[in-house]
Design a binder for these strands. Sequence first.
DNA 1: TTTGGCATGTAATCCGTTACATGATTAG
DNA 2: CTAATCATGTAACGGATTACATGCCAAA
Lengths: 186, 186
Amino acid sequence: MGSKQRQSTSEIAILGVLSLHESLSGYDIREFIGASISHFWNESFGQIYPILARLKRQKLVTVVVDKDSSRDRKLYSITEDGRQKVSQWIAEKAQPDRPRSELLLKVFLGSQVHPDVVIEHLESLAESCAAQAAIFQQIEREVRRLDSGKRTLPYSIVSIRAGLRLAQARAKWAREAIVIIRKGAE
Amino acid sequence: MGSKQRQSTSEIAILGVLSLHESLSGYDIREFIGASISHFWNESFGQIYPILARLKRQKLVTVVVDKDSSRDRKLYSITEDGRQKVSQWIAEKAQPDRPRSELLLKVFLGSQVHPDVVIEHLESLAESCAAQAAIFQQIEREVRRLDSGKRTLPYSIVSIRAGLRLAQARAKWAREAIVIIRKGAE
DNA sequence: TTTGGCATGTAATCCGTTACATGATTAG
DNA sequence: CTAATCATGTAACGGATTACATGCCAAA
């Protein structure tokens, strides 16, 4: 029967990015991901280019070579079939993410080292998360200003605030963790 | 020219688990991970057994075959060298984690589908995170009761509370996200 | 007696990053 | 002129899950 093996999440992600734009090059896709969703999703060139070729073979995207540009640019656009794949996938239940955190592992194993070692990790985390949170708030303001009126706005805002809330929670946790560990070390 | 290629994080994780115990079998290691740190770390048997063999070759662990047990059990114990590796690694700066969240991606692409589709995802997330948070609180109480006095206690507590704080933050975010999206859809 | 849990391992496969390879354009 | 950025791709490698393969023991 059909040669339709299931789409990988990376394929869907790239297709999804394409669904938000008229047309993009592989390079553009990487740029866009880095600038907008890198706090919860990433794709490298090593994935992007081969995937783009596959999507083309499956007619989920089309390509045209850019004429206006001085450079060698292949501009990809999503097809109707591609759009359907995307909206179908969005409606499916999300796979639970299996996170991996080196930092948490270090903290969990903390009894093996001097408490100060762990506390230093936590202090630097609290700091960097607070800084990150500030950046997310900055970005939110920027996006509200620039994308005002676009129908994608609420989804952008909500994605940014996911990063914000996470950073805040991490900072809060780090600070409370320091207190608990100090008490335990007495 | 020692044959010392750098340790992978999975190797360190397994070594770290071993550092908290007298001796464990591969099966025990999987069990322990599943019961205590699965919310931020996981290892499958496909990793554990080959890694255990490698660690043995590097003299970071020793093995004895269990006699008391009726079953075929190889009990692994960490060596002094192994302990050093662990504490050395803990002290190093943690690599930032690169998270990947299907759910966030679905939300980010939400403009491609009917708002209700995304809102349903968010409602179910808010629910499951609230439930998870309650479980973490339950576990915290249990661990305080059972591990009271152990020097690993504060590190266990803090790890559990990382899960708790994260679940709470996610639930909070999901609820606020629903409001934002509903407003945007008017 | 048969199902589920204990127990160890290997092989296939997939996924993803990094490194490699190449080259044009543009800004300093 | 030369370094950074734009631009596309392939190859090597490593890491991790899943499936496969095997078998014993205990409880229902």
